[in-house]
């Protein structure tokens, strides 16, 4: 079995946040790749390999902001979960919001986790490390494969 580097798709319109996340991820595991799109619209194109995303790779995990232009996170989440070949990719909502309403709504629509964007870089690294352990380490992926019998990762 050919192990490829894990890939995260980050859907966020804030370049600085993407950059920061990328930098923080490097401290967690330098092998993780991070691709980014600026909103839900582009995210769907990316996942469906449309337009200039024709050669895109299927991500292992999706980070998604809630407030974005064109198609916001709430809408995007519904679209992702409605599409058969995408709905099994875990989506982690990564937002500034702390509103209980947003949290409930995200989980109701099958988000894998709701993470509030941390204030300090240390915290960010901590959270990314936890996410990495839960969803991206070899053992986590293997466990998932055993459980589901899916060999797609």
């Amino acid at each position: 079995m050919q192990r490829v580097q894990p890939l995260i798709l980050m859907i966020d319109d804030n370049i600085a946040d993407i950059e920061l996340t990328r930098e923080a991820l490097r401290e967690v595991d330098f092998r993780i790749e991070l691709e980014s799109v600026r909103d839900g619209f582009d995210a769907l194109a990316y996942l469906r390999r449309q337009g200039h995303y024709a050669n895109s790779r299927r991500p292992n995990l999706i980070f998604m902001d809630l407030n974005m232009p064109r198609m916001d996170g709430r809408e995007t989440l519904l679209m992702l979960k409605a599409q058969d070949d995408i709905c099994d990719i875990p989506v982690i909502v990564f937002s500034t919001s702390e509103s209980p309403f947003d949290v409930r709504e995200s989980y109701r629509n099958h988000a894998a986790a709701f993470v509030t964007k941390p204030v300090t870089i240390e915290e960010l690294i901590e959270k990314l490390r936890a996410i990495h352990t839960l969803w991206l380490t070899g053992s986590a992926v293997q466990s998932l494969q055993h459980l589901t019998g899916v060999m797609g990762y």
Binding site: D17, E19, E122
Partner: peptide, 20 residues
């Protein structure tokens, strides 16, 4: 509050990254 938090996070994030 929301809008201003975005650039603030950039400033603070990169400043911390710089420090680190």
């Amino acid at each position: 509050t929301h809008t201003l938090q975005e650039p603030l996070r950039s400033i603070s994030g990169f400043a911390q990254l710089l420090e680190r």
